[in-house]
Design a protein around this nucleic acid. Sequence first.
DNA 1: ACATAGTGTGCAAAAACCTGCAAAACCGGC
DNA 2: GCCGGTTTTGCAGGTTTTTGCACACTATGT
Lengths: 249, 249
Amino acid sequence: MLKRERQAYIVHQVNLHNKVLSNTLSFEIDVSEDTIRRDLQELNEKGKLIKVHGGALSHAFNDITYPSKKIYSQDSKRIIGEKAARLIKDGMFVLTGGGTTIIEMARSLPVNLSATFISGSIPAIVEYMHHPLIEVIVIGDKLSKNSKITLGTHAIAKINTLKPDLCFLGINAIDLQHGITDSDWDVVQIKQSMIEASQKVVCLTISEKINTMQPVKVCNLNKIDILITELPKEHPLLQPYVAAGITVM
Amino acid sequence: MLKRERQAYIVHQVNLHNKVLSNTLSFEIDVSEDTIRRDLQELNEKGKLIKVHGGALSHAFNDITYPSKKIYSQDSKRIIGEKAARLIKDGMFVLTGGGTTIIEMARSLPVNLSATFISGSIPAIVEYMHHPLIEVIVIGDKLSKNSKITLGTHAIAKINTLKPDLCFLGINAIDLQHGITDSDWDVVQIKQSMIEASQKVVCLTISEKINTMQPVKVCNLNKIDILITELPKEHPLLQPYVAAGITVM
DNA sequence: ACATAGTGTGCAAAAACCTGCAAAACCGGC
DNA sequence: GCCGGTTTTGCAGGTTTTTGCACACTATGT
């Protein structure tokens, strides 16, 4: 890999994720950390990013001094996104919802992936749109400002005509007794039809939402095939779900 | 192998792979690396590629990573957008296409406007989404990477069920003889159904596209109600269209 | 304070580069 | 065909760039 090419890749990653780690890049590009550090220094001088201890941040991100909690959960979501992205193979039909974890997944998709993505989430569609080999099917209906996804009977009817290989859902609450729960009734309608339509259901969530509950029920645990969190699958918090027959990643 | 022939091959490889290595080329073409280097230098001076340490990168590659924010007649489009935005009143149902002029219109909408916008253009939807009082209906179907709007029979069928008050179209070519013309067959199908569905049709275009022609016909001039350009309505270029019964703004 | 992880400096090897030069090929005119 | 001039190409050499490693130093968090 050429130096210039490598630096372009780094800039791309920074713009995408707002943050990069030296050791991650070193592993991804397969060069020493020293080289990465020198690259980051150069790019810093050119004003393409801001070098910090351990990696670099995007210019936009650094302007606002975010609370550290947000950065932390951003990290978790990126891990989740990367795990989820690995499930998708060339030629698959994938149905996805919205939410920040789904966006992170979209950003982690390999550039040369060739698959079909179906979604009603505008931010997710924008991400998919950037991938040259991905076909995007937009689910139309009225757009919800809160969730930034399309909601309504037309959307549900459309989803019911599909038989995707995989369905990715960002979830807001999951517990052993009540299964998956959520707060918005309209969103739940869509999620239910997505679950029913798909051959395999993958749920994404950060660990802090595990064993929590929301007022509206989406589905029982037995509808879920795979659960992805930022924790390793051996973590004690996840063992009850493994025991319930869910593949935990 | 002739010099000219060799350089043509190099340019071809760069356009194909976005990148070439000096030593690879040297091996493939069976000339010394010095010769390759000299070729790359010449091609660099001619602007055919960008020479870097170890090889060369395509111009396209460099554009993507170091985006050149080339603003194409941005000012004119802003004027058009502002004129168009004035046509929309509270409570209206508005159908819009895609394109940069439509985006400019969306950005010019007053914050307190309360109307319903229907569109299949993802960038336009993203703009509408930012307005607190605007309801957005998304037209679903397969997303075209080129035009960033949804295209297909489902989208057309959906549009045919609507009766919006106004329809805004960004157009690529208009002339007295052939009316509105465009280059993409699929996009034209959508535009035609949008025109048929709407009570009033508003066309937006920068003046340089007036009296130009494209291969695919969209509709005759008599289907258009309002034509908006960046020029004042008294401008001589526009008078033939006024005479044809179109309201020019 | 201690352990861990990240940093900067200097160094050395490899790769790529530049310069100048000469052989070979090519060209135009006689 | 022949001869001076130009272009092209490869090579020798010395220089610069790039990269990884060793080592001592500094930051960060528990």
